[in-house]
Nucleic acid binder design. Sequence first.
RNA 1: GCGAGAGUGGCGGAAUUGGCAGACGCACCAGACUUAGGAUCUGGCGGGUAAAACCGUGGGGGUUCGAGUCCCCCCUUUCGCACCA
Length: 852
Amino acid sequence: MTVKQPEQRELRYDPKPIEEKWFARFQGDPTLYAAEPRDSKRKKYYVLEMLPYPSGALHIGHVRNYAIGDALARYMWMRGYNVLHPMGWDAFGLPAENAAIKSNVPPKEWTLRNIAHMKAQMKRLGFAYDWSREITSCLPEYYRWNQWFFLKLYERGLAYRKNSKVNWCPECATVLANEQVLSNGCCWRHEETPVVQRELEQWFVRTTNYSEELLRDLDELEDWPEKVRTMQRNWIGRSEGALVDFKLDGPAGRAGDKITVFTTRMDTIFGATSIQLAPEHPLVADIIGNDHHLRAKVEELTREQRKAREAGDVGGIEKHGVFTHRFAINPFNQEKIPIWVANYILLDYGTGAIMSVPAHDERDHEFAKKYELEIRVVILPRRVGEPPPSDREDNALLPYTEKESLLINSGEFNGFSNEEAIEKMTAYAEKGGFGKKTVTYRLKDWGISRQRYWGTPIPMLYCAKCGIVPVPEDQLPVLLPDKVQITLQGGSPLAQAPEFMNATCPKCGGAARRETDTMDTFVDSSWYFYRYTCAQLQDRALDTDTVDYWFPIDQYIGGIEHAILHLIYSRFWTKFMRDLGIVRNSEPVLRLFTQGMVIKDGAKMSKSKGNVVSPDEMVERYGADSTRAYSLFAAPPDRDLDWQDAGVEGVHRFLSRVYRFVMRYAYCAREEKNSKSGPQGALPPEARAIQRKLHQTIKRVTDDFQGRWHFNTCIAAIMEFVNELYGAEEKIASGELPAAVVADAERRVVLLLAPFAPYLAAELWEALGETDNLLRHPWPEYDPALAKEEEIEYPIQINGKLRSKITVPADSAEDFVRDGALADEKVRAALEGKQLVKTIVIPGKLVNLVLK
RNA sequence: GCGAGAGUGGCGGAAUUGGCAGACGCACCAGACUUAGGAUCUGGCGGGUAAAACCGUGGGGGUUCGAGUCCCCCCUUUCGCACCA
């Protein structure tokens, strides 16, 4: 056998020409990542990354997001699945309008330019997307379906218009939905701009119709992070209780003759010693009448609340209130109790009015102490197995808010437990016609009106004769006018465009005015991922059967920031589409993965902090493969990642080592084409060691893809193996090691690398003499028999401390291992003068000797 | 205040079910090859010691032959929620 000389010339890994070469080839091969099922009987895998907002260039955090999804897509593809992996972002292609205006570029052009730039970046990074499925939501085709869905919502009474107080971001110059206001009271897009309240006519979507289902189905989403499920539960905020009417004592006002309160603690109603109204409760104006002093006081309370709300710290407000000089009647005992107005009562939760029970509610207690209101105990702790305690007040316990309780001072309900009392008292109220069992939700309807120019126009007309009239389906899409004056002065710029504004009423043929509000961009993002399955469809929004094949999404990957925005809206939209009969699934996403943020210099990457790492720069310096591999190597994907440029260099060095090794010894594979099944027959120990490590490495990498996605340890395992190959380099170069072993190792390492460094893998695959596309090559299998160690090193512990090590054949019996351990020199020395109390042998793990 | 994570060398992080703590990488140190090295290769690298012993996974206790891992108490930190009646 002739010994081939390894490649002698200096081999330098230069990613640039390699990536350019394969970039061109990938582009020329539209079938490479095609989503058309290769075989409809195969299992499918739909993987999608969550959309970052295309307000500028990609930063390295996005790259990490895509790198995770891309590695999965490639792996599943090699596993033989039909993979759908479309772009996540461009469906969301509505720009920060202001940014466009400030840069003096028309918004549409600005959007398309942004998208083109990002697309170029994505392509350069080599992400395996199906580019034939692009959707760009700023284009007329997408408007059509958004508007069509809106008409369906309207037909079903799920879209309505109402005048209400809304959140307004001065920076965006538009309205925001509740979900789009951060907990610090600022806008989700402008994290330092406080949102203010405005009163406006707005279009709403009745998400609350699905509150119950949105909540209930969270239980089924077992493969969602618990954190996201909890956030959604809190956001929906279901609360079971009852409504109770308290009649006004004295004359009725315009807003009625009673105050309805919501309570979850009906059992404490005999302890109600006042009624508290929200400052903006409609009855307040009625009952304070023309009392200037009271009116001023209420205005002050309103201001305090508004200020706290705008600061996002309603919890920190100092409780203030004022007595209205009016009374209400407790329907349970006909007692007259004072009506107050308080700044901590919120109009938009429950009914905006509460019964105050100072003895059994912390807030009421604090308030009553401050204003010296009566505190009356009506429940006592129940002591199991003991007779009910006496009616003595125990002030140290107050407020007593536990549910484990027993009623006192409550008329005919004395002696009942909390649970029984709530049930009986609610029934009593229902029977008496002054109350009823009810459930309230914190979730509000979704306000979708935006006063932007750039967005899907809401397809509605206002006719003087016919009122609100929907645009007929055959007139869709309603398109935006080309030229408008954008002033950001509030109100939609569309109102200044007469050619847009003036329309004909489809009912009476008279003059009509068009709705000038456009839709929230979250409407687009609520269903864009469905459209990917049938992007070219002309006559319908979606094809039900195609959607049914791909849905639900198998894996959605993104940041936590959409937990209660996009992820609630899209769940709602799915249920709505299911009820329309367009889709068959009730949930859009089977598994959700929230990856960590990328941290740089101790802070979250953001433009305002100036710590953004640009992928372009990284690709220029180290290449796309090194950049994406580092984003997976530096930390497990669910944790935050601390970006260090030096780390990229390390990964780059590793890829260089792989490149040099494979290029140098590629001849082994080219010469050994006949033995692709791996080396046959008995191998010398060094060759066996390489083979064993190879199969162990395949197992480690495969296990992590199947299980917990710790891609950092996958890459580490491949590094270890490559180090081992270098350790045997002398023997490989001299031909001492069978070429078949080297060839086998090279081929499989390249395949293992394919999800993490696809350009390099493609180049090396070719160098190994392979002509097929490596994505079409099956993922390497490991052979447990070949991965098995032949010898095991047992650590010998004495009293739990490591003292020695022995090496025995892997299949040694326990006795043999024990005898071996006891025969060890160091062990015998330690045994000197001591008594062996116990010997513990854990097969395959260790030996522990207990001495006394 | 409530809820969920996290705390391991100089740094990022390994250790999936209790079984050799620090894999892999960065940084650093030494050496080789070099006119040169910001290339490459080899070796070292938790503290401590001449070498051992010994000490080491935020702190304190416990269970166990054996604890980063399990239990109890506490500290720090990140995120989310917070007058939700």
